[in-house]
Design a protein around this nucleic acid. Structure first.
Length: 882
RNA sequence: GGGCGGAUAGCUCAGUCGGAAGAGCAGUGCCCUUACAAGGCACGGGUCGCAGGUUCGAGCCCUGUUCCGCCCACCA
């Protein structure tokens, strides 16, 4: 009795499934890791999103891929921990709150540090749950019980410990040097936070410095600059020491036109290229990195001429108070009025800008905290060179190396309020700096009690650098840390290889003695369908939450996974989403077919039919390929393997093959088909679970037998992932069915070419060569191609189909167009001729025969024979038409 | 200036060990067939950027080169 027993809705309800299953999973404790449980550890720490941020496509991709791996490994019996959390995102968050306050007419400096921080915490509390809620919508299976925040108590402790240790080791130090200053953010920034704007139209502006005393005919020296205003801070003119034009002037001085200062002319072979411009360079050691080095080499005075917000300071004489760009204008005018202007030319240049504020970065002399990089970077390079950590794709290691190999010391202090405050106390009595794990009450040098904590906070990335072990409990020696460090893999984007990956590497190696992760998977950028970066100004931003609302989270995740090729950006398009939604629907419909025929878990049958064995073998092959793809981070191939199996093998073929059995009355055959169908879905729902968690759960829970009261099948989330050995390989069955399929397609093609409706039953004659398995499947030819095979002679008017050496003469009495048929056969024969001459050429090539591998030789010979036989059949058919 | 990646069907991309080029989407023809028209069946479509080389054999390996994208550094 095969009456439908279960009414499934026509369409899968993604939203209902998500709403139902996520809370169940979470409350069941299935996301939770247990360091004492069995299994090889598999840990991923999430790249923590900005705590006050919103989910964008980058997050969606990043977290979907992590969840795919985590769910796969969890099902595969690993002891899995996916540790979630958020980042305080120093500058970014402070800015948002500052802007909010400013809208209310409040400046943070007016309200004071403490009050302001209260506002930031309030904003964090208010908006902080948002990103986490959105991640849950994505279906991520993180261990939320271990959720961390970079400024929570434990992580703050880790940050402090790290600072103190490195300070004690001499790897963190305080120094006064030229740093990148953001005049809008009013803070120092690191080299990495400086972005260069390309192709800025500027000018090179030349003017003369007048010599204090004429030297022969020479009364002046001409310099050129893109920043005339910095001349207020000039403390030297540099020329090449071998330049005959200027050699004799070295040691002389020029008089500054605006401030009371004599400026020496010096020789410097490193800075000066005599062939460039006038061959003389003004030197501003306090506002230019190259000039600063000259200043150090020649022990020049370093005169800062700007206030923190980049206005001319007291060193600037008449220009004091002017913004640097206004000062530039006025100085050009005044130099011109003095008759010192010596020409200008257009100049395309790059402009250094602050990543966060967009301000033109001003190099400034400033006292800051630094981390010494060389001793930390060297082991981090070595760890990747020696393969302790592998980049996927491998090429990214070059990027990593190139930065670490000549990285400069890291400026870690920021003049902000939101962040980890530097654990250093300055003694007002003796000036000693006290750094320690606990807040000091007296100065360790002089015993004085007038201690002031350093005002600065640490660069956000300082705490991020500790993330893979601070989240596991470091500096405590926790069970989590012992069990889950080093983590298995880090998934992230290429844009933070320097900011984050490299820094986690050297901090992990330094404190833990081991790399923080064995693999680093670098995914691409999600772009729009034209390949353009998504941006608010372009208006091409896709909101993941909106898309999830529309198509369901499973199809959304499937699309992301399918697009995630190794080392390529993802071009997001509605077409892709539609395509994968349709795929989901296809599975759903096949699943409905299962439910039409199967109402409870079928018993294992005594024997399986050839189609059953075939689809199970194909499933086994799919499982192998999917596993290989997952293990190699080929997410795109995971998706395409599942797609190809489900659509082209299960739906296109097996479901059709199984219909005669399922609709028929042969008990054992029917039972075998039911069992097979059930088995395939039993595996398929597990196979797709990492990508489509809710959909697969819906399939799993409603699997006949699983949906019955008292079923202990549980959740698919913790069911075993299908294994290589689960299914027999069945090489003979695969060959036989491939031949059968070939025959079916060949007959269908004839039908299509002759424009014969599928309803018209055909008769094909075979001379009696059909033997073995293929012969047994003649019924499939009837069912799938509506052709009946009879043993008998060739009919008068017939089209021939040759498969695996068997001739099938399809009787086309009355519908055969001899002309067209002749044309078809001629074309086919031409193709065969080409193929035959190719194979003959190859096989008559002495070099090929002697050097090619034997299996290829054998294959070529077999193919040649097959093609020749086929040609004979077709030629006979052509002759018969005449 | 240094480095990395890419170039394969109209579009977006796969292509494993070097062994006669694949998918999705788009296109064409036929079909509402008892899971599915969000579907089925069939078909057409490629000088693998270019030029050399190695090899019996190259989309794949080597050399050179063009174009596109990105990163780093520098720019008086």
């Amino acid at each position: 009795m095969s009456t439908p027993r279960k009414e499934l809705p026509a369409f899968y309800d993604a939203h209902a499934a998500a709403a139902l299953y996520y809370p169940q999973w979470e409350s069941s404790g299935a996301f939770k890791a247990d360091p004492n449980a069995k299994g090889e550890p598999y840990c991923i720490v999430i790249p923590p999103p900005n705590v006050t941020g919103n989910l964008h496509m980058g997050h969606a991709l990043n977290n979907t891929l992590q969840d795919v791996l985590i769910r796969y490994k969890r099902m595969d019996g690993y002891n899995v921990l996916w540790l979630p959390g958020t980042d305080h995102a120093g500058i970014a968050t402070q800015w948002v709150v500052e802007r909010q306050l400013r809208a209310k007419g409040i400046e943070r400096r007016d309200m004071g540090r403490e009050k302001f921080l209260e506002c930031v915490w309030e904003w964090k509390e208010q908006s902080g749950g948002n990103i986490v809620r959105q991640l849950r919508r994505l279906g991520v299976s993180c261990d939320w019980s271990r959720e961390r925040f970079t400024m929570d108590e434990g992580l703050s402790k880790a940050v402090r410990e790290n600072f103190v240790r490195l300070y004690e080791e001499g790897l963190i130090y305080r120094a006064t040097r030229l740093i990148n200053w953001d005049p809008i953010g009013l803070t120092a920034i690191s080299d990495l936070e400086v972005e260069t704007e390309e192709n800025v139209q500027g000018e090179i502006w030349s003017f003369a410095y007048v010599l204090s005393e004429p030297h022969g005919d020479t009364t002046e020296i001409v310099v050129a600059t893109t920043r005339p205003e910095t001349m207020l801070g000039d403390t030297a003119i540099a020329v090449h020491p071998d330049d005959p034009r200027y050699k004799h002037l070295i040691g002389k001085t020029v008089k500054h036109p605006f401030v009371d200062r004599l400026i020496p002319i010096i020789g410097d072979a490193i800075l000066v290229d005599p062939a460039f411009g006038s061959g003389a360079v003004k030197v501003t050691p306090a506002h230019d990195f190259n000039d600063h080095e000259v200043g150090v080499r020649h022990n020049l005075p370093m005169i800062s001429i700007f206030t923190p917000d980049a206005k001319v300071n007291g060193e600037g004489g008449a220009y004091v108070g002017l913004d640097r760009f206004a000062a530039r204008k006025k100085i050009k005018q005044d130099l011109t009025d003095l008759g010192l202007f010596r020409g200008r030319q257009d100049h395309t240049m790059t402009l250094p800008k602050s990543q966060r504020s967009g301000a033109v970065v001003e190099p400034m002399i400033s006292t800051q905290w630094f981390m010494k990089m060389k001793p930390l970077a060297t082991p981090a390079v070595g760890a990747v060179e020696h393969g302790f950590t592998t980049f996927w794709p491998d090429a990214w290691k070059n990027t990593y190396f190139s930065w670490l190999r000549d990285v400069k010391d890291w400026c870690i202090s920021r003049q902000l309020w939101w962040g980890h405050r530097i654990p250093a106390w300055h003694c007002a009595d003796c000036g000693h700096v006290n750094v320690g794990r606990t807040d000091p009450t007296e100065c360790s040098a002089c015993g004085g009690t007038r201690l002031n904590q350093d005002d600065d906070v640490l660069d956000t990335w300082f705490s991020s650098a500790l993330w893979p072990f601070s989240t596991l409990g470091w500096p405590e020696r926790t069970p989590d840390l012992a069990r889950y460090y080093p983590t298995a893999v880090l998934l992230t984007g290429f844009d933070i290889i320097f900011f984050w990956v490299a820094r986690m590497m050297f901090m992990g190696l330094h404190h833990m003695g081991q790399v923080p992760f064995k693999d680093v998977y670098i995914h691409g950028l999600v772009r729009d369908e034209n390949g353009d970066k998504m941006s608010k100004t372009k208006g091409n931003v896709v909101d993941p939450v909106e898309t999830i609302d529309r198509v369901g989270v499973d199809a959304f995740r499937m699309t992301l996974t399918a697009l995630a090729g190794l080392g390529r950006d993802l071009l997001w398009s509605e077409k892709q989403v539609d395509s994968w939604s349709r795929f989901q629907n296809k599975i759903w419909n096949a699943y409905k077919f299962l439910h039409m025929h199967v109402s409870e878990q079928p018993a294992v049958p005594a024997a399986l039919g050839p189609y059953d064995r075939w689809i199970l073998a194909r499933l086994g092959s799919c499982v192998r390929n999917v596993r290989a793809a997952l293990d190699g981070y080929r997410f795109d191939m995971v998706a395409s393997e599942i797609y190809a199996f489900t659509w082209y093998e299960l739906c296109d073929w097996y479901l059709e093959f199984s219909k005669p059995a399922l609709y028929g009355e042969d008990g054992p055959v029917k039972d075998a088909a039911k069992h097979t169908l059930w088995t395939v879905f039993h595996a398929l729902s597990r196979l797709i679970h990492p990508i489509m968690p809710f959909f697969s759960e819906e399939l799993w829970r409603n699997l006949p037998g699983h949906d019955q009261p008292g079923s202990t099948s549980g959740t698919v989330m913790t069911a075993a992932y299908p294994k290589d050995g689960d299914f027999a390989e069945e090489p003979e069955v695969l060959t036989a069915i491939a031949t059968l399929q070939e025959a079916i397609v060949a007959v269908r093609r004839i039908r299509s070419e002759k424009n014969l409706s599928p309803k018209v039953g055909l008769v094909a004659a075979n001379a009696g060569t059909l033997t073995g398995l293929f012969a047994g499947q003649a019924s499939a030819l009837r069912d799938l191609a509506n052709v009946t095979v009879v043993t008998g002679p060739r009919p008068e008017q017939a089209a021939v189909v040759v498969v695996a050496g068997h001739e099938l003469w399809i009787n086309l009495d009355g519908v055969l167009d001899t002309g067209k048929e002749r044309e078809r056969l001629t074309k086919e024969i031409e193709k065969l001729n080409k193929s035959i001459s190719f194979l003959e050429g190859r096989l008559s090539n002495e070099a090929f025969v002697s050097k090619a591998p034997p299996h290829l030789l054998e294959k070529s010979r077999g193919e040649l024979q097959g093609e020749k036989d086929k040609r004979l059949s077709l030629e006979a058919a052509l002759k018969a038409l005449a």
